[in-house]
Design a protein around this nucleic acid. Sequence first.
DNA 1: TTCGATGTTCTTGAAACGTCGAACAAGTTA
DNA 2: TAACTTGTTCGACGTTTCAAGAACATCGAA
Lengths: 123, 123
Amino acid sequence: MVVMRQARHPDVDEISLIAVMGALSDPIRVGLARVLADGRERSWGELRAPVVKSTLSHHLRVLRDAGVTRTRQEGTRCFVVLRRRDLDARFPGLLDAVLNAAHTDDVGAQVSLADGQSGLLHG
Amino acid sequence: MVVMRQARHPDVDEISLIAVMGALSDPIRVGLARVLADGRERSWGELRAPVVKSTLSHHLRVLRDAGVTRTRQEGTRCFVVLRRRDLDARFPGLLDAVLNAAHTDDVGAQVSLADGQSGLLHG
DNA sequence: TTCGATGTTCTTGAAACGTCGAACAAGTTA
DNA sequence: TAACTTGTTCGACGTTTCAAGAACATCGAA
């Protein structure tokens, strides 16, 4: 039985500008992108956002469907990573411009990483 | 009597990233931005989009409210211009990245200028 | 003043969006 | 097997958005 309906990620050349812009027009999703901006893969659990899990799941799905992130499943948990290379290849400069702008205004600051999980952690 | 409720344009530092991203996540509005990309001021009437005038008015309002364009009134007609300098100052690289991406995919091609009005014209 | 041209606003309806809570599915652990 | 964990899906709700048509406001011309 196929697992939790393995999400379909758009192919690089299927990534749509409108979809990406739409995905990055919500503060929480911009916050998620910022948290993932260092290129590190993060687990669901590390992500702290002021919404319940189903809503977070929704936002992560929008990002995934738009081609902004990639989700990987390992056992019972998921890992997300920014598709920086793909986005840069498709729309040069766009992601950086958005991330810089978000940093400038501190957009999406409500999203963060779980305490102490800024990279290393809890064995 | 104040005219057609002169639209309020956000101040440069009031321009919100989320609003700009939202404004540019619609094909018609991206098309409008592309048409205005050369920096020339255009009159309402020059803009050709596959929607009725009230809808076009709506889209231009969204762009204006977000700070993407500036509207000027002259007599009975309006002129729009891209706020390129302001946007570049506030979010460096963002507008260019979006316009380039839009060009690559030909997003917003449904929007154009009225015949023969590609720059010079009618007396 | 009456018309016509140009845009805005209002109203209405359909679709999309963000949010939550509850139910579900799959893997892990006891 | 029975919990528990993790994440998805679904239904519901209210808000926002897009679209069109009709009414209105302003200006210029007759």
